[in-house]
């Protein structure tokens, strides 16, 4: 299954890649694969903006605006002005998804 096209905020600068392979191991959607010791993007539309690649990239080659993809959290953040958050059971009043 695929979600909307051309919406992901993922950017990648191949010239900065050190070839540590973490992005290809950590991406749950298979966006990154390794080709001749550099990471390459297969299909940007598969990106779910979880931020795992950016977090595990030591050379700042990857950027993505990571966040919660939960509709109710985003609606609530629109009204409260706070960052969207899936609260569940940590005592905060935010929504649970």
């Amino acid at each position: 299954m695929k979600y909307l096209s051309n919406v992901s905020t993922l950017t990648y600068d191949e010239s900065l890649c050190t070839g540590c392979r973490y992005c290809s191991q950590v991406c749950p959607s298979g966006v990154f694969i390794m080709e001749s010791k550099k990471a390459v993007i297969t299909d940007k539309d598969l990106c779910i903006e979880c931020g795992a690649c950016q977090k595990n990239c030591d050379s700042n080659a990857i950027t993505v605006l990571a966040g919660v993809g939960c509709s109710s959290a985003l609606i609530q953040s629109f009204f409260t002005g706070e960052a969207p958050s899936c609260g569940c059971s940590d005592g905060s009043k935010s929504v649970c998804c």
Binding site: Y3, S8, P28, S29, L46, I48, E49, G69, C97
Partner: peptide, 10 residues
């Protein structure tokens, strides 16, 4: 919010 393939921008 419960799926494996959606993203916040979408």
């Amino acid at each position: 919010g419960s799926t494996t393939f959606t993203n916040p921008s979408g």
